[in-house]
């Protein structure tokens, strides 16, 4: 045993946190810190990169290295950090706004490059920090403060997007499934290459209140009912699938990561074509 507990990674002086009662972010932060403890990683070995938004505040409660950047750019900063010092464990915490709305371009390219880092995306289907506006994952006809009658845009499926872009490891769960979530984060951090954990999360204050229920308990139950293991999901009819989402590990590949490939191709003694 390393002697680390989840508390080893929290900055106690900053707690209690600013998130609303029943917000999924606290559950995910707990799972993340539990995972770090079980992986026996020293806080000095880990860089937590955050963006902007409710989940982007997570670094304020953490005692690992932290890089709190700008909205949507977490993966671009994280890419530089990882390549600047490949020995570091780099984890980017992003919301659905950060990861696939304003930062969608960085998301697909970090997956395509297969940068050896982990993205933990909390998807609560809206922008909580700014007051519950719709994001690129808000489902079609989802009600938000900027789509009072329902949004006319369909939402992204983050995991499909990451898979199509080439991510090595893609998994999804919800903040209801606290133990599975912790294990998934552990597996993702241990996996070489770009790994994504999508955590479908609850925002009782906005998305819940407008679309499901303002009760944190009812929101977690809603997530529990929506989530079905991927095998079962594949056997569902299209109509049933539309009402659910698949959870568990969705992609598990072993494509060499960017740094390994770059170093293989670009040896210091190598001369470029046409140059002797």
């Amino acid at each position: 045993m390393s002697g680390y507990t989840f508390k080893s990674y929290l900055e106690k002086s900053q707690l209690p946190h600013m998130w609303c009662p029943g917000c999924g972010d606290g559950i995910i932060l707990r799972a993340y810190t539990e995972a770090l403890a079980e992986l026996c990683l020293a806080p000095q070995e880990v860089v937590t990169v955050t963006g902007i938004g409710c989940w982007g505040k997570a670094d304020d409660y953490l005692g690992t290295h932290a890089f709190h950047g700008t909205h949507g750019r977490a993966l671009a900063f994280a890419t530089g950090i990882k390549l600047g010092n490949p020995d570091l464990t780099v984890v980017a915490l992003m919301g659905d706004g950060d990861a696939v709305t304003i930062g969608g371009n960085h998301f697909i390219h970090a997956a395509r490059r297969n940068i050896n880092l982990t993205a933990i995306v909390t998807n609560n289907y809206n922008y909580g920090m700014t007051g519950g506006q719709y994001s690129a994952t808000t489902p079609l006809e989802g009600k938000t403060t900027t789509s009072p009658n329902g949004t006319a845009e369909p939402g992204f499926d983050l995991c499909f997007l990451a898979e199509a872009a080439g991510a090595n490891f893609v998994a999804r769960t919800t903040c209801y499934h606290a133990v599975a979530l912790k294990n998934m984060i552990k597996e993702a951090i241990s996996h070489q290459g770009f790994s994504l954990v999508e955590v479908v999360s609850s925002c009782p204050t906005y998305f819940g209140r407008f679309n499901v229920h303002p009760s944190p308990v009812k929101m977690l139950n809603w997530l529990k009912d929506k989530a079905v293991p991927v095998q079962k999901y594949r056997e569902m009819s299209a109509a049933e699938q539309a009402e659910h989402f698949a959870v568990s590990t969705l992609v598990n590949k072993n494509r060499p990561d960017f740094y390994t490939t770059y170093k293989r191709i670009n040896r210091p003694d190598q001369s470029a074509k046409g140059e002797e």
């Binding site: 860089v47 990169v49 890089f67 950047g69 700008t70 949507g72 750019r73 671009a76 900063f77 994280a78 890419t79 530089g80 950090i81 990882k82 390549l83 600047g84 010092n85 570091l88 371009n105 960085h106 390219h109």
Partner: peptide
């Protein structure tokens, strides 16, 4: 992928 990411990456690498 773009200049937003370019400057972000060099800032990240510098921090490392």
């Amino acid at each position: 992928e773009d200049e937003l990411g370019s400057i972000a990456a060099i800032i990240g690498a510098s921090a490392a």
